[in-house]
């Protein structure tokens, strides 16, 4: 079970959190302008990488804040955590 460093509360056990899928998928500003294919791309397509992946997490049983996490899915190593709106780390 992971230990996750919530950027607002500090280190907590994974059971307090929920994963929210791939990060940095922006909801289109003008959905009505999109074709079915373009909308499907936003709606359904996710990378699900084996390796370093950018993910959304929420501290459900804590501060209820969403944040982003860089995690290596092959060994569960958490490489970085940053707040919503912050730029993802480049390295």
């Amino acid at each position: 079970m992971f230990l996750i460093h919530c950027p607002y509360c500090g280190e907590r056990e994974q059971s307090e959190f929920k994963a929210g899928g791939e990060a940095h998928i922006v909801r289109p500003k003008q959905p009505t302008e999109l074709s079915d294919d373009q909308w499907a791309e936003y709606l359904f397509m996710r990378k699900n990488i084996k390796g370093v992946q950018f993910e959304r997490w929420v501290h459900t049983h804590g501060c209820r804040k969403w944040f982003n996490m860089v995690r290596d899915t092959s060994n569960d190593e958490i490489k970085a955590i940053y707040k919503m709106g912050e730029k993802p780390p480049t390295k």
Binding site: K18, G20, R64, W66, M84
Partner: peptide, 13 residues
């Protein structure tokens, strides 16, 4: 509540 918070915090801050 979780879903509304999600949109508020991540799409429409």
């Amino acid at each position: 509540l979780g879903k509304l918070e999600d949109y508020l915090q991540t799409e429409w801050p």
